[in-house]
Write a protein that binds this DNA or RNA. Structure first.
Lengths: 155, 155
DNA sequence: GTCTTTCAGGTATGGTGTATAACTGTTGAG
DNA sequence: CTCAACAGTTATACACCATACCTGAAAGAC
């Protein structure tokens, strides 16, 4: 740990470590790698897991609302929904109220896989936050939320 | 804010909001968009800015050490260094000790641009953390660091 | 000295996430 | 009816990340 060559590499990015954004990028890289490895056995990625979860929690929602919830552009959602539909995890039912829109609904298999995935992702999340006290973890989530929504002040 | 249609979209990802990783991804998206917009006027991206900063702070380091400091793979660094070199912000001098390696050094223009970029990135970082107290900001950076380096316990 | 392993830099390639423009068909307001 | 706005889609482009593989050079074994 206190070796000679090691510390030079460790100090090389010292000028960037003062930035919150840099710390977030570095942490995110670790989290994303672990999460994708965690989800790989179930053939899910971060995005497909998120989309499936939102559909399970909000059956019948449209693709536009799903894209809005995940903060991704509609065109990029198409392939994600395609994949989930082809794997029979969700269905693209026609919306009864709007012939333009689909009503996305999870299949029983989708609900089942989502439950299993949620469990492994919870374990992953606990693993990532292993070095944090419950209070520190809550404070982290709160801080991230404030960064995401700058308009909401410090209420 | 308390409209009818709005809250449904807001609650749609409630099942994901319990995950630290999801909050990080959402916050990171906002930060990265703002950072890239901030750096665009100087024709820099997150990566080129980071690389330039590390070279300025560690003149003479090799590409392998630079890649190590930024936690990116060596092949992906090549184009970044190419760009910085072509814009005459850094030089690829031959290493005096190792004929395989380059000694990356910033040019005066590189040092100048790096200084200017550092200033706007600091302003950006303050903007992102505007909703956080200094203590909360420090706690956030500490928490992110612990997530990034799981081995380091809670020392 | 030679031989072999390791390393620095680079090339090629694929997968993934994201952003935009443009199109089809539908809705809804005038 | 007319027309603007919207849902979903297609095509496309770019950025980032990862891997395998190649070259030349260094470092150790013998």
């Amino acid at each position: 740990m206190t070796g000679a060559g090691c510390e030079q590499a460790a100090l090389a990015d010292a000028g960037l470590r003062g930035f919150v954004g840099y710390g977030m990028k570095r942490a995110m890289q670790v989290v994303q790698a672990d999460l994708n490895a965690t989800l790989a056995p179930m053939d899910l990625r971060m995005l497909t897991f998120s989309a499936l979860t939102v559909v399970v929690d909000n059956p019948g929602l449209s693709q536009a609302r799903l894209a809005d919830a995940l903060a991704i552009e509609r065109p990029n959602l198409v392939l994600v929904v395609d994949e989930l539909e082809q794997r029979a995890l969700i269905t693209r039912d026609p919306s009864p109220k709007d012939r333009r829109a689909y009503a996305l609904k999870p299949t029983p298999a989708g609900v089942r896989l989502c439950g299993a995935a949620r469990a492994v992702v919870m374990a992953h999340d606990d693993r990532m936050a292993a070095g944090l006290s419950p209070e520190a973890r809550a404070a982290l989530m709160e801080a991230l939320r404030r960064i995401e929504t700058p308009g909401e002040g410090q209420g």
